[in-house]
Amino acid sequence: MNIEYSHFWLSKAGNLPSVCEDAFFPYNFPFDIIPHNRKYQRYAIADGASTAYLSGLWATILVDGFGSYEDEITNTNFFDLIQTLIIGEYWNSRLADYIKKREDEGKPLSWYDEMALQNGAASTLLEISFPLEENKLKDNFSALAIGDSCLFLVRNDELVTTFPLNSSADFDNSPLLISSDPNRNVNLQEKIAYIENQSINTGDQFFLMTDALASWFFQEHEKGEKPWTIIQEKVMDKSSFTNWIDQLRENKLMRNDDVTLMFLKISGDS
């Protein structure tokens, strides 16, 4: 089996693409996926909290760190990985680069930048991993999630799995978030959602999406529609994705927010 992969993203209407705070992995497919002796093929999306500072950067570090992690991710080593991303050569060094860049540009951090930084960046995370054996897909997947970025598994034209949320009513304005400040993650451990060793079949379709689109997906399904069919009809490329999201926003069917959609299809050996 193989995985066909495509992804689409769009920043909130009114914002420049450069301030989109969603992130996904792999970005440079297939180059981000190291092509030999891997144990897992991973994909991840994250939604940086617009209420926090530099959350887009933190979301990028999370998806890169989790997406390229080579070993099994468990409840035990999850926080070690987060800690590595913060203290290791990722968050702190990117932060130092950012502060230096501001100084070089003659715009050193102001009192409010410093206070915003003290509050830490924050992001959701949704990661899905497919175990490999001799670089070939095994027959199962696992996923973990913090927050309201969602995964939908469609099999034989039926929605068979939603994760971590179950309905449009599960969304609110305060999703769980991973903070770049370890002190703010102390109560997170028991709230990480996992699904493990779920089977995959040829033809399975995985949709990973950040909250605004995920909420639309649930609402359509709750009305008896098949939102995965709508996505496949409407989304061919970046341009058609942009037009479709613009329409959903204009028709008030979707909240104006950054949007990420990742599509994975399990195909047979070619």
């Binding site: 301030v19 209420t51 500072y53 950067l57 409010y112 930048d113 206070m115 915003a116």
Partner: peptide, 14 residues
């Protein structure tokens, strides 16, 4: 006012 400013602060400005 301080909290309002900080919560409106993004990398590109307030």
């Amino acid at each position: 006012l301080t909290n309002l400013v900080v919560n409106c602060t993004k990398a590109e400005g307030v």
